[in-house]
């Protein structure tokens, strides 16, 4: 049944996400989306916002959006690899260095006609409006420094699931699943050797207190998320409001990537200030990391083929789109 969103010409959408207030996703993503949509619609779009997993855990949000409990919310493929498997392509290692390039490219693949839209989002009745991406996953370790891809062999690393697990495994380390809240203690007590994540995520868990080494530029993968709307709710909206929402989404994608770039930089600084030894990967070493990455891409493509998904096409499309966006950015300069 079509949701009843409208009252006196004003449409109110229930929005939910899994990020704490103040997190870049919530502030520069959902915040900007809602604020701009309100402005662009002349107040005819309103939002009832439930941040910080108030409405459900990250992995449950896609189904809560689908079933209409909320209309719009955060959807991250890494949390629901079984539901949005192909979108994991965006999280593969070695592809994206800059959040703005990455998220704009991925947003295109996730919009109407794009491969991720057709394969993942459309069948689930989800329509991505904002795409956010934390690029540059690094290894943070407690006692064992990582300089080269070989140093990862045999390490046990807390991993957040999805494509990142695959990357960790591909580098010869063992991904260990555990709740994010247990990560701090697990590293400090040596239950695991470390973790892989974007520098922006290290500070909220105070990982700078328990890690001694971090890589810089390892590009172990990314974390991609979207704010997606339930297709049924989208269809209820009049054309001009859809347009407002679409434009607000694009602006939010831009503001979010800028905030994430800054967040990653701040995160690195926090690590440095806390005395964490940063191992910079320079151009010479880059080659070794790229060599280690290639088989992971192949393995991922093969795994997608196993479940009947066009992994090779998605990877090719993403690489093409990344090049195109880079060219466009270059032309703009």
């Amino acid at each position: 049944p079509a949701p009843s969103l409208e009252s006196d010409g004003v449409y109110t959408l229930k929005v939910a996400d899994s990020y704490p207030v103040g997190h870049p996703f919530a502030e520069a993503g959902a915040g900007v989306l809602m604020e701009r949509a309100r402005e662009l619609s002349g107040g005819r779009l309103r939002f009832d916002y439930f941040p910080a997993e108030q409405m459900g855990h990250a992995a449950d949000l896609p189904s809560l959006i689908r079933s209409g409990v909320v209309d719009l919310g955060s959807v991250a493929p890494a949390y629901v690899p079984a539901e949005l498997p192909l979108s994991g392509v965006a999280d593969l290692p070695g592809l994206v260095e800059d959040s703005c390039t990455g998220s704009v490219a991925v947003a295109r693949l996730m919009s109407e006609g794009g491969v991720l839209w057709q394969e993942d989002f459309q069948p689930k009745n989800l329509r991505p409006l904002v795409v956010g991406m934390i690029p540059d996953y690094e290894v943070l370790t407690g006692s064992r420094p990582v300089h080269t891809p070989q140093d990862l062999r045999g390490l046990q690393l807390r991993s957040s699931g999805g494509t990142i697990d695959r990357a960790v495994e591909g580098f010869g380390a063992a991904p260990v699943g555990m709740p994010a809240t247990e990560m701090y203690e697990a590293i400090s007590r040596g239950t695991v050797d470390g973790t892989v994540l974007g520098p922006v995520s290290a500070a909220p868990y105070h990982l700078e207190e328990v890690t001694r080494y971090a890589t810089l530029g390892a590009r172990l993968g990314s974390f991609t998320m979207t704010y997606s709307i339930n297709e049924a709710a989208w269809e209820v909206l009049p054309e001009d409001l859809r347009d407002a929402l679409r434009r607000a989404g694009q602006e939010a994608t831009r503001s979010l990537c800028a905030a994430l770039q800054e967040g990653n930089a701040e995160g690195r600084q926090t690590l440095r200030d806390a005395g964490v030894r940063i191992q910079r990967i320079d151009e010479a070493q880059r080659e070794a990391w790229n060599r280690a990455t290639a088989p992971i891409h192949e393995q991922w493509t093969a795994n997608m083929a196993d479940i009947g998904r066009p992994g090779a096409a998605a990877l090719r499309d993403l690489k093409d789109e990344l090049r195109r966006v880079e060219r466009e950015n270059h032309d703009d300069d």
């Binding site: 049944p1 459900g56 189904s63 409990v69």
Partner: peptide
Amino acid sequence: GGLSVVVGVLQS
């Protein structure tokens, strides 16, 4: 929210 919200919540 009516039956649809009930069923929606009970689904997850």
